[in-house]
Design a protein around this nucleic acid. Structure first.
Lengths: 147, 147
DNA sequence: CGTCAATTGCAAGTCACTGGCATTTACAAA
DNA sequence: TTTGTAAATGCCAGTGACTTGCAATTGACG
């Protein structure tokens, strides 16, 4: 999936491709640790940390904090048109809520639960606040941990 | 403010009282670090970490992750009636959104922006999900950092 | 094919927080 | 008031998730 890398102005390197593959294969957000584990002992952990940061900055990934404080990374769907901007300033295209299981710590994307757009209406806060985006995290017990 | 401690079934100790005071005086959520700094060098940092945990478990405090991954702690208003349950299982009484400034990292309670209650409707997710609570975090630039 | 900035890999560091354990203390009961 | 006891504290050392510095490597243009 070097297309997306090149589209974002990034070099297509083996580590980046492998990271994107692993994250796409896992259907849920993974901690850096999990990604490192799935890459085998041949890949340097520091490189993976840096790779995840880079990919997230360029909006090929998005990330959420797990309850343990570690980031979870997940792939973002490819942009609808090639004209959609990449880069650090781009907004997530389909901001959605996330689910955090309080039992197992697992994180899931709730694609079907969009972040309520009215949360971004600046006038809900003082006019002197510059609102950029909002996150919604739902806590509870996931099906796997259910009783 | 030992009343609240005793009400929660906790011992009234100098450290706990001091922590509650400092957090009440700051009108915004503080990182453990900030609390420690405001207590002077006479209080042990580990004790403060444990104290913050204890107070949060007993719902005298609530906490949010800052963008740096460190918890921010803020006092919760006293329960409306004395019959309101305390303890680890109690739900926050007035769940509200929080604001995180991407410039300075500061966190604020948006008491006037309640967490949309429909986020908790279980049927928005599969029926096998057990939804407990939801968090809303708004990102942007705070008045102090504005240009 | 060569050039060179972008990536990588490795060593060492930082930061927020936790665990273990001996000492002290709040507070209930005598 | 005194005492007994579990709960809190203080200190040391550890953990885990990153980050930083820097030299060696490499992808992708010309």
């Amino acid at each position: 999936m070097g297309d997306r890398l090149r589209g974002a102005g990034l070099r297509r390197t083996p580590v980046r491709v492998a990271v994107l593959q692993r994250l796409a294969a896992a259907r849920k957000p993974l901690a850096a640790n999990d990604v490192i584990a799935r890459l085998g002992p041949h890949t340097d952990a520091v490189t993976v940390y840096r790779t995840l940061n880079t990919l997230a900055e360029h909006n090929l990934l998005h990330r959420v904090r797990g309850e343990d404080g570690a980031w979870r990374y997940a792939t973002t769907p490819p942009p609808a048109t090639t004209a959609v901007p990449h880069g650090p300033d781009a907004r997530p295209e389909h901001p959605h809520a996330h689910f955090v299981c309080d039992e197992c710590g697992g994180v899931e994307c709730l694609e079907e639960l969009p972040v309520p757009p009215d949360l971004l209406r600046r006038n809900r806060l003082g006019r002197r606040y510059d609102v950029r985006c909002a996150e919604v995290v739902v806590h509870g017990t996931c099906p796997k941990c259910h009783d």
